[in-house]
Nucleic acid binder design. Sequence first.
DNA 1: ACCCAGGGTAACT
DNA 2: AGTTACCATGGG
Length: 262
Amino acid sequence: MDHYIKADRLDLSETLFCGQCFRFSGENGVYSGFAGDKFARLIQKEDGVLLKDIGDNDAPFWESYFDAGLDYGEVIAELSADKIFVKAAEGHGIRVLRQEPFETLISFIISQNNNIKRITGIISRLCEGFGEKIPGGCAFPTAKRLAALSEEELAPLRAGFRARYILDAARKVESGEINLGEIALLPAGEGRERLKAITGVGDKVADCVLLFGMHKLECVPKDVWVKRIIAAYYPDGLPACMSRYGGIAQQYLFDYARKNGI
DNA sequence: ACCCAGGGTAACT
DNA sequence: AGTTACCATGGG
């Protein structure tokens, strides 16, 4: 079936390729890709997105994925008390997606000291190798499946030193030592500390999981680009208008810094 | 050959 | 508590 999602500030190219998710491809308004165990083809429209041939019961999933219920007009208005944000956001349409926690965790473990092109490749090989076959391709692997693997079996991914981090994360999730559903309900600070019990998860990766996988919109992952932005423009810290939606602001600032080479 | 990439760990002061 | 070398791999 097809399904239309109406949402403002939703530029698919910017939203899908800004480094928050790694399983989509396409150009010129036509895209396709995966979220969790679901596949979709997406067409950019003026005030939203047209989903093509999705599962009969998957419309609510994709509505949630693009966080269609959140009015970005209000979000952008609140953040626009800051003039640097206004400059970074004008003419752009990035929405912070509601991704699955485990997929987000593994994806951002892979992201460390890595570039987006290679991250995409490693995740693609991970899904092709160990994800369940679904219409359109392969689902993201389950924790159960990954937890049973050895480092040698992950070698084809060419993930380097991150292979053992992937296994540690999958095993702690599978054993219940890390309960992502529970962590999602905690205040961000407590959730961050729990996530850091996983080898290979520090402040930045934990914040990415909290923001992109648990929708903690106040979390601001401090990657090299955001650190440069803060050093250059916010030496005294981020402004108060970013306390609620700092994570969304961060995504615009990250994109701005990256494109302008700050 | 050298440097960097949406960092983290371990081993130092 | 705050630095620093090192970690695999691939592209510039």
